[in-house]
Amino acid sequence: MIGSGLGLGAGFLFKTGPEANTSVIGLGGLRSDNGSRAAAAIVRLASPDNRWQIKAFAGKADVIYELYTGLGAVPVRQESRLARINAAFGFTSELSAGIVLRYLETVLSPEGGLQPPSLQPGTRLEIGTAGFSFDWDRRDDSDYPTEGTRMAAVATRSRTLGSLGRSYERGIATFDGYRPFGARSSLAVRGTVCAASSGTPFFDQCSIGATDNMRGFNSTKHLGLRMVSLQAEYRQRFSQRWGGVVFAGTGRTGNRFADLAQDGSRSAAGAGVRYRVSKKFPVDFSIDISRSNERETQLYIYVGQRF
């Protein structure tokens, strides 16, 4: 999406109690050969009894990428500063709800070529977002689950700040399910539904690849006000350190749920390797390769699982 480059990150993982989910403090940065660069920090804290869950993110980026529009692929430069926090309270050990707050400052400008009306040079937006989160988590582990289910939903309302402010809404719901097959293998599935109101900027619309974490597609290629997708992944541990996965997924986007069948499905499949970077926490360094039904190949390098 942004060319070839280098990303570096560091994270400190710890538990506040024996039954608590893993807490993380992390820093990261990247730079690519097309001039894109970014830096970010994350904090994810869980109280000893998991009663409180706090997730915070702050970052800045200056990236150049292609936005797919009716005029074709348009090179776009986007400079952004983002801060987001989600604070949730657990009513039981499995069920929690919370608030979501976000501030985004972004400047969009085409990098030459055709210019869509929505991307005039120097387009600057300040957006404030508030909403609610819901989480019903019955997984056996928050880092590498092999059994159980998780249902999560986030509903937000955003408003552009300034004299000509306008509002838009978005809701995302996900269902994750896990089933073990013996001591070293498991099956993971994810279903995602997304809906956004008219007037939502393209970077907040429903996206195959960004909204649902599906592998195989550029996250700015298949956007819409509605989206559904389904993914499955088979996970196998070969030893204490090494593992592998095979996966597949399919999704659809459109401006209405009734339109989802018109443009056809976007499907992809692939395989990956896992290397466990910690003896204390089941956290993997992951490398995946995916091939889509559009005959495009994508390589993914990250820490953890996609879902």
Rank of each mutant, 00 (worst) to 15 (best):
R295A: 14
Y275L: 14
S267V: 04
Q120N: 12
A61G: 13
T106G: 03
G131P: 02
A38F: 03
P201I: 01
Y103K: 13
L27R: 04
E79V: 15
R51M: 11
A61S: 15
G224V: 01
L164P: 05
G28H: 02
Q53H: 13
E19L: 13
A261L: 10
P282A: 08
Q236R: 12
E126L: 08
T253H: 08
I54F: 09
S167G: 14
R241F: 11
I301D: 04
T123R: 14
G70P: 00
A196Y: 01
L299T: 10
C206N: 01
R124N: 11
T211V: 03
I172D: 04
A183Y: 07
G272Q: 00
M227D: 04
G249Y: 07
R190A: 00
A188Y: 05
G148I: 02
G264C: 04
S286C: 11
P75C: 08
Q115C: 07
C206Y: 00
F281I: 01
A58M: 05
P121Y: 11
H222P: 01
L101D: 08
T149F: 14
A38D: 05
A130M: 12
M214F: 11
V189T: 15
G35V: 02
G165M: 05
R241H: 12
R102M: 13
A88D: 12
A271S: 11
Q115S: 14
A261W: 11
Y302H: 12
L8I: 15
L125K: 09
R226I: 02
A39E: 09
D135M: 07
A155C: 08
I99L: 15
G9N: 12
G171Q: 09
T69E: 04
Q262K: 15
Y144C: 06
D259N: 12
L125D: 06
Q115F: 06
I25L: 14
Q53N: 12
S290C: 06
T160P: 04
P145V: 03
F12P: 04
K279E: 15
G191T: 09
S278V: 06
A130H: 11
D33R: 02
L67F: 11
V277E: 05
Q231D: 01
L6A: 14
F57G: 06
V63R: 09
S267H: 00
R138T: 03
A268F: 01
L104R: 03
Y144A: 10
R226T: 12
S186M: 02
L95I: 13
T123V: 14
D212M: 01
W242Q: 01
V273T: 12
P117G: 09
Y65K: 06
Q53G: 00
Q236A: 13
P110T: 10
R81W: 10
Q298M: 13
S207N: 00
G131D: 07
A88L: 10
P201W: 00
T253F: 03
T253I: 15
I42T: 14
M1D: 09
G35Y: 01
A46S: 14
T160N: 04
Y68M: 02
S32N: 14
D135A: 06
Q120K: 14
P18T: 10
E66T: 12
R31P: 06
G35R: 01
I301V: 15
I127M: 02
E111W: 05
D49Q: 14
A271T: 11
D33T: 10
L67G: 00
Y300S: 09
F57M: 07
R31M: 10
R77V: 04
E147Y: 11
E79Q: 15
E294Q: 15
M214C: 00
V283G: 00
Q262Y: 08
F12A: 10
G112S: 10
